[in-house]
Structure formats: C-alpha cells, structure tokens
Design a binder for these strands. Structure first.
Lengths: 148, 148
DNA sequence: ATAAAGGTTCCCATGATGGGAAGGTCAAGC
DNA sequence: GCTTGACCTTCCCATCATGGGAACCTTTAT
C-alpha cells in the first residue's frame, strides 16, 4: 500500500504520516525499490490508533506513551488509566478557562445595547485598568495561553 | 518610560510589545536618541487593552479590530457586540469539542480497572477501527485541531 | 572605573498542520 | 511505444503567540 492509500485508510494525511515518521512516532516505513513508502494493514492499524488518540486531544508526545503502553503486553491498565485521567483533567481545566472567558464576554455583551451608538461596555471594560470587572485569567499550570 | 517599565505596568512582556510593534498591532514607539523605546501612559493604556483582550481569548487579529473600534468615535456598539458574540460562539464550540473528548475519555476510564492487569478498554477503544465506540470529532468550522 | 541591569537586533524553537515547487514513477489509454 | 495524469519523493516555507539566547550597547549605581 502506498502512502496515499494508507492515508485514506487511516484518516491520517500523507503529510502527517511522513511527519510522524520523521519525528519517530512511528517506525520508518519500508520502501519499494524506487523509494516509495509501503504500508501494511498493521501499519494502518497503528495510524488509526494515532488518529483516534489525536481526536481525543492527546498530543503527539502523549500518543507516543499510549503507543508504548499499547505494545507492552505487560502493561498495567492503571498506567493507561492514569494517562487518560490526567488528560481529562487537563481538558477540564481548559474548559473552565474557556467558560470563564465566554461568561465574561457574554455578560459584557448583555450590557451592550448593540445599536448605532458608540457607547459600549465591552470596550469600556477592555479599556479599564486591570483592576476592572473582567476576570483575570486563572493560571492552571503549563496549559498557557488559550488558542481558540 | 522604557519598555521594561511599560511591560511591568501593562502586563505585556517586553518581547511581546516588540512583537506587537513589528506586526503593526501598535504604532512604533518613539525612540530616545540612543534608540531606546519610550512609552507614555497612553501607550501603556493601549497595551493593557491588548492584554485584557488576549486574556479574553481574542487573537491578535481580533484585537486589531477591537482597537480600531475603540479608537473610532463613530463606531456602532452593534459592531463591537457582534465581534464579542462571534468570539463567544467560537469559545462555546471549542468548549463543546473539549467536553466531548473529556466525556469519551472519562467513560472509557470508568470502564478501566486501573490495576496491574494489562486489559484496558481505553487501549481497546483506541485500537478499534474508526467505526468503534469513541466519537469522531465534530467539525466546527475553522477552529481546527484542539490544543490542550 | 567598573559592574549590574536593562536596552537593541537577530536568529531559533515551539506543535501540528498545510502549501507548494522540483523532479521521479506508475498506470491507463491511444 | 508514448503521452498524460495521478501519485510519489524531498525540501523549504508559513502558521500563531510566545519565549530563549547571543552579541552588543547604554544607563545607573557603587
């Protein structure tokens, strides 16, 4: 199977498959005599695992750990569970952060007439000193600035 | 005021102040005869506005629009409100996306014994075909892959 | 005078992803 | 056999907001 077919079968783009190979997340694929990458069903299976983990929001680094556990027949399910719960906790922190932003903005917007006059509590809040009504961001460890 | 003092007073790092200048979000600061950037209280006020908008999750591009509205005395508050509500909508979409991830993972983790045995429904789910139980990601426009 | 602190520019890295160019390969149809 | 289009390869660049650090200059305090 060529990379394009593996991409289609796994839901991971050809670009990303090459990237995962380059960064060591997956083993380098075999090559045809002309240098084309060749994928087996097993490879596609692994790629689908990766795709799935990405869909659940794991970073590539986290996926590497998950893959290692997956391959380790002697793994303890506790280790997997701990990883999963750690990720859930990170997701929840991020959710709370976003909810606070949304709530603040919604409150401000609710106070805004939204007509053709220039007066706007949203701008007034932004322009207010840091001591104003909008909430300061809560720091939750290494999750850093929100990208929405 | 030097850049370090402006940074402290505004909550925006010196690095970011230079970056905002370079990318045109703020006007280039005045310079001393030796080339040091000089900031006024007004500049700091603008920087604090920016900081605040970042804390609410606006992108730099969005902040540029907000700043333009802020400076436009003839603005219509409806325009500001629309921007704010658009951002709230984006935040809510992201929140839902993260909540779905967290719920899926939590469900899987709940089914995981979390002991020293290797059997793990989390890994089984990840290894399952794309037709398995874990939810496929819901596409919500241009918000793209979640970074948590 | 000297040292510390802070300024300047420039380059690099992040994380996951896509775009695109230049060039080789394969398969199908004529 | 030859052309064409689809596909592969590598390599470089861009994203977005942020930080790190080097090399070098200035200001301030001792």
């Amino acid at each position: 199977m060529n990379i394009g077919q593996a991409a289609k079968a796994s839901g991971v783009s050809a670009k990303m498959i090459r990237y995962y190979e380059e960064t060591g997340l997956v083993m380098p694929a075999e090559r045809s005599d002309k240098g084309y990458r060749i994928y087996s069903d097993k490879d596609v299976h692994t790629l689908r695992f990766i795709r799935r983990a990405r869909d659940l929001g794991f970073t590539v680094e986290g996926i590497a750990e998950l893959l290692a556990l997956w391959r380790d027949r002697g793994r303890h399910s506790a280790d997997v569970k701990q990883m999963a719960m750690g990720h859930v906790a990170a997701l929840r922190r991020k959710i709370i952060e976003l909810e606070e932003m949304a709530a603040t903005l919604q409150t401000l917007a609710d106070c805004c007439a939204g007509d053709d006059r220039p007066d706007c509590p949203i701008l007034m809040d932004l322009a207010a000193g840091a001591d104003g009504p909008a909430k300061m961001p809560h720091r939750f460890g290494p999750l850093a600035e929100t990208k929405v």
